[in-house]
């Protein structure tokens, strides 16, 4: 589905990503782990066109996208859940959803499907999103991305700061999308959450992917967790 090949990217003169390659197949959850500052968030921004890709290629279903203007990327079917949620805080839940529905998706049908996944959001449609609880905000961030009916869903640390019940809900949604054939790229720092969701795990360090391991071969004691994440 998504193929990142040997890209370099960064902020102004500072290069953060160098020689990074990663494939994200459809119908699988590809988890990305790595220490703070390894460049995980920057990689997702590079795919979204929010950070300029200076070398290498990014392809979605074989179509090159690394030179596209950022606002043309999501319409191709990429849903993005940024780190820290980045909701439109002074907008209501319904308005955040409406932003998601603008570009892609099948309007009311998509909206109903997404709200069925998160009934708590349906009860709070008129509420300002900055007044939601942390868990509800994360649900909304995921819901907003799902409104694009994504072929590729990218989530940046969605379980950060959430209670176990919320993490379980996120997991349920991620696995359901995977089973529907969506390619999921999930940046996740919690070993238990990774082991519960991943089909493959990519370990990042110093701005590139050092190792990709099939999840069935991983246990909580795997040496990669110590080497790349430090847990």
């Amino acid at each position: 589905m998504l193929e990142i090949a040997d890209i370099a990217a960064g902020y102004g003169p500072v290069r953060v990503l160098e020689g990074l390659s990663l494939k994200v197949p459809a119908g699988q959850v590809t988890c990305v782990m790595g220490r703070n500052g390894a460049g995980k968030s920057t990689m997702l921004k590079a795919v979204m066109g929010l950070v300029r890709v200076e070398a290498g290629t990014v392809a979605l279903e074989g179509q090159r996208i690394e030179r596209l203007e950022a606002h043309r990327v999501p319409g191709l079917g990429i849903g993005y859940v940024p780190q820290g949620r980045r909701l439109f805080g002074d907008m209501t839940v319904a308005e955040n959803i409406a932003i998601g529905l603008r570009t892609r998706g099948r309007g009311a049908a998509t909206r109903e499907r997404v709200l069925d996944l998160f009934p708590r959001l349906r009860e709070r449609l008129g509420q300002l999103s900055r007044t939601l609880s942390g868990g509800e905000q994360q649900m909304l961030a995921v819901a907003r991305a799902l409104c694009l009916e994504p072929k590729l869903l990218m989530l940046d640390e969605p379980t950060e700061g959430l209670q176990p019940s919320m993490i379980a809900l996120i997991r349920e949604v991620v696995l359901r999308l995977r089973d529907e054939g969506v390619a999921v790229l999930l940046v996740e720092q919690r070993v238990d959450a990774v082991l519960a969701m991943a089909d493959r795990v990519a370990f990042m360090t110093g701005g590139h992917v050092a190792e990709v391991v099939p999840a069935p071969g991983l246990t909580p004691e795997a040496p990669q967790f110590v080497r790349y994440v430090g847990v």
Binding site: L50, A70, V73, P74, R102
Partner: peptide, 14 residues
Amino acid sequence: RATQIDGETARAFG
């Protein structure tokens, strides 16, 4: 309003 609140995220939603 979306652009005013967060331009980068607005771009990420098309």
